[in-house]
Design a protein around this nucleic acid. Sequence first.
DNA 1: TAGTGGTCTAGACCACGGA
DNA 2: CCGTGGTCTAGACCACTAG
Lengths: 235, 235
Amino acid sequence: MRIPSYQLIENEIKEKIKKSELKHGTKIPSENDLKETYGVSRMTVRQALNNLVNDGYLYRHKGKGTFVNHTKMEKRIQGLLSFTEEMQLMNRMVTNKIASFQVMKATEEVAAKLFLGSGEEVYRIERIRSADGVPVLYETLYLPKRIFKDLTESIVKNSLYNYIEKELKLSINFSIQSIEAVNANQTVSNYLGIALDYAVLHITLNTFLDNGHPFEYVSSYYRADQYRFIQHAFR
Amino acid sequence: MRIPSYQLIENEIKEKIKKSELKHGTKIPSENDLKETYGVSRMTVRQALNNLVNDGYLYRHKGKGTFVNHTKMEKRIQGLLSFTEEMQLMNRMVTNKIASFQVMKATEEVAAKLFLGSGEEVYRIERIRSADGVPVLYETLYLPKRIFKDLTESIVKNSLYNYIEKELKLSINFSIQSIEAVNANQTVSNYLGIALDYAVLHITLNTFLDNGHPFEYVSSYYRADQYRFIQHAFR
DNA sequence: TAGTGGTCTAGACCACGGA
DNA sequence: CCGTGGTCTAGACCACTAG
């Protein structure tokens, strides 16, 4: 298992940025200096720097030098993160409560969202997820039995994305989300402990694997005072 | 004005993909073939291909070859669209009503969002935007006077993005949006013609130019029954 | 085994920025 | 002017994939 030298250089610079040894606007050593420091050719140094520029860690000015960028934290957030991961980023403790867990035949709507044949079975799971003990969202998950053969409550109580990636060795690709505002109905108001008619975010989510198959359909309700949705969009 | 050879190679391949001469999954010639075709070194070919891979046009498989990617269309759709453009996509007629139009000194919040010095002037504009005659959103725009020297009501009544790109010749890069659900207050309820406390989407938007400067800060309220927000996210 | 992309070298000339 | 990054060469060896 050899690690290529350009990756070693990349990682070392990345670490320094993360540890704030290199701060926004700082000039890093020139390509010729780095070439000497690491005992590699200039092209290898450039490969490392190119990757860091593409990832937004650095930017270059012809004739001047290479500098540390400041926007990295923001860029990370635009990716697809699970609720657990999102809350970890904010240093908040996640707890999950399973309100129901059953296997049923997919309804027409769910079958359509999950690309299932009629009569195929799905798990239907209701969860209430809290951050630092405060209920933030109530969601209903639909997962194809075909993909999740031996799902248990304890798996769902922890991070589903972690289970999919680490245990099932499946590769999550992208999701389509629809976001709207609705007034809380009786169920939502009960589960989240908020007043009836209080505004909540209703997000439905269809998530797909690398092979193009959808593996989850989720309908979730977020407490407006606890959650906001940040996104980057490029023109 | 010399164009580097790697860019020529890049552009030629990009064109072929756009004209569908190269379709999804097609294997493109090997790096050694391209090297011969264009009479350059292999590193130069790789520079061209690296850029196309980073832009999502191609993907590589070690030992197999380089292939044309298919996700370009999807990537387009997730991009940043103005309200006018979005509504046009859905074949809905947009009308804008200007509720107020003034120049004022930026408040602290607005100055921070627009990277302005204290005391700098901004336009503050309130618009109600309708699709097919139905009010969909009420928004307050803040635009730096420094960038929009001669803004008029009639420009704002049409598409601002169009004016920025076609008239001012500025290049819009990306936006950061924050989306939350709130209950309509008196103002919102009046302008959108909905009941008080009805759930609405509150979206604030900070949009940036290619040079990194923010050019608008917008706070908008969308009618929940008329608008939903769709987005793709990649893992 | 042959062909592919992944990594790497030791040079070179250029254009730009600042002193 | 010198130092910077931008482009480019003509090789090399490696790891992976397929027949």
